[in-house]
Amino acid sequence: MKRWMMLIPLAAFLLLAVFLYKGLFLKPDELPSAMIGKPFPAFSLRAVQGSQTLTERDLHGRAALVNVWGTWCPSCKVEHPYLNQLAEQGVVIHGINYKDDNAAALKWLADFHNPYQLDISDEQGTLGLDLGVYGAPETFLIDAQGIIRYKHVGVVDSTVWREQLAPRYQQLVDEARP
Rank of each mutant, 00 (worst) to 15 (best):
T71H: 01
E30P: 00
R57S: 13
Y169W: 10
N102L: 06
L131H: 01
K22D: 12
A17V: 12
C73M: 10
H113I: 03
P81M: 07
D122C: 00
A34S: 12
A12E: 01
W108K: 09
P9N: 10
V92Q: 15
A11K: 11
M5F: 01
V133F: 03
P137D: 09
A17R: 07
R168A: 14
L172H: 01
G128V: 05
Y21N: 14
C76P: 01
V66C: 05
Y169R: 05
Y150S: 11
P81S: 08
P137I: 15
L127W: 02
A103M: 04
A166I: 02
D101V: 10
V153Y: 12
A105I: 08
A144L: 07
M1P: 14
S51F: 09
L86A: 04
L16H: 02
D130I: 03
Y98D: 05
N114L: 05
T71C: 03
V48A: 02
L16N: 09
I147T: 14
G128E: 05
Q124I: 06
V18P: 02
E56C: 07
K27M: 07
Y134M: 12
L14P: 00
S33E: 09
S75K: 08
K38F: 01
E138H: 07
W72L: 03
R162N: 12
Q171A: 12
P167W: 14
D157W: 02
L24S: 06
L24T: 05
I93S: 08
L65M: 09
I147P: 00
A110V: 08
N67Q: 05
V155M: 14
L14Q: 10
N67S: 07
Q164K: 11
V153L: 15
I147Y: 08
A103G: 03
S121Y: 05
R168E: 02
Q89T: 11
I142M: 07
H60W: 10
G23E: 07
V156H: 02
E79F: 02
L14K: 06
A136S: 13
N114K: 05
I8Y: 03
E123P: 00
G132R: 13
F25S: 13
P81C: 08
I142H: 03
A110K: 14
L45T: 04
L86I: 04
V91R: 06
L26F: 10
F43T: 09
Q170D: 15
V18C: 01
Q145E: 13
F40L: 08
L26H: 14
I36V: 06
Q170L: 14
L129Q: 15
T71I: 03
A47S: 12
N84A: 11
G70W: 05
R46T: 13
W4A: 13
Q89I: 04
E138D: 09
I96V: 14
C73S: 13
R177K: 15
V133A: 13
G95K: 10
I36K: 09
A11W: 03
A17W: 06
F25A: 09
R177H: 03
Q85L: 06
A110R: 15
G146N: 00
I148E: 00
Q89E: 13
L54M: 07
Y150F: 15
T71A: 10
V78T: 11
L118N: 01
P115T: 07
R57E: 14
A87K: 01
G135N: 09
G61W: 11
I93D: 11
D122H: 00
E175C: 01
V48Q: 03
A34H: 06
K77G: 05
